[in-house]
């Protein structure tokens, strides 16, 4: 692979998050380096999604710090995170169901749009040229993900596997520097999984995008990620390269103890 893993771009320090009495995350620290594929794994309810939600500010941790490119935050908010180049997909697909694929992807361009409301309302030159430029970018993403045939289909009518792909497309349309993926391959058949794997690797390789990935399929995780964090009951029980994590006795017992 041609890509070069860089410095730490995102650093989480002693993050704790609870919902009422439920401790979703306890004292979690780990870092993410530029251009790497960083996986988060763990049994159901381990706190993986909560971790992603803390990173982009959907959840606000009670304790801890998020350091993004050297800037310290005690909490994020989703808008700030998006501005800072973090985009994401959701475990339960959160596409805009009433819109077609193109429009869903176009919403991903929202932050990059400069024309104001008045210009848009009257479809003035600048607004129009801008719309066309963004449209071209969106078409690139559509080609990249091989979804030309469904460009105009309302996303609510697409099969699950394709919705997941459109969800990735919307995130990519933002041209993120960090991409958070929450179980991008869940519920897919083998062929769809292979496609998704290829897209993730290509994004990482061609655009240098840093990827934080939650995934249950061990074979996939061990295959594509550079480093892996393991969570169990909200605590970190392992962290390192795939081989080291696989050999970690705590990790083995967590996975054997869990009911799947």
């Amino acid at each position: 692979m041609s890509r070069q893993i860089g410095e730490v771009i995102l650093d989480l320090k002693q993050v704790s998050l609870s919902f009422g009495g439920v401790k979703a995350l306890t004292d979690i620290s780990f870092d993410v380096r530029e251009h790497e594929i960083r996986a988060i794994i763990g049994p159901n309810g381990a706190g993986k999604s909560s971790m992603l939600n803390v990173i982009n500010g959907v959840y606000r941790p009670q304790l801890g710090e998020i350091i993004l490119r050297g800037q310290h935050f005690s909490k994020m908010n989703p808008y700030k995170a998006a501005k800072a180049g973090i985009s994401r997909t959701f475990q339960n697909i959160a596409l805009f169901k009433g819109m077609n694929v193109i429009d869903n992807l176009m919403t991903g361009r929202n932050l990059k749009i400069r024309s104001n409301l008045i210009q848009q309302a009257f479809w003035w030159g600048a607004a129009r040229r801008e719309e066309l430029a963004h449209r071209a970018k969106v078409e690139e993403v559509i080609d990249f993900l091989e979804i030309q045939h469904i460009r105009k289909t309302p996303v609510g009518r697409l099969p699950y596997g394709l919705q997941k792909r459109v969800d990735l497309g919307r995130a990519l349309a933002m041209e993120p520097s960090i991409l958070l993926l929450d179980e991008p391959m869940a519920g897919m058949n083998v062929e769809e999984k292979q496609d998704m794997c290829r897209f993730i690797l290509d994004v990482n390789d061609q655009f240098g995008t840093t990827i934080v990935l939650i995934e249950h399929d061990m074979a996939v995780v061990m295959d594509i990620s550079d480093r892996v964090v393991v969570l169990d009951y909200g605590k970190k029980i392992g962290d390192g390269e795939p081989d080291a994590v696989r050999a970690n006795p705590d990790v083995i017992s967590a996975y054997l103890g869990a009911s799947h």
């Binding site: 989703p78 808008y79 998006a82 994401r88 805009f96 933002m174």
Partner: peptide
């Protein structure tokens, strides 16, 4: 359609 998703792609609520 979806507040959370909209915010996460940088639409200011």
């Amino acid at each position: 359609d979806d507040h959370q998703a909209a915010q996460s792609i940088g639409i200011p609520l």
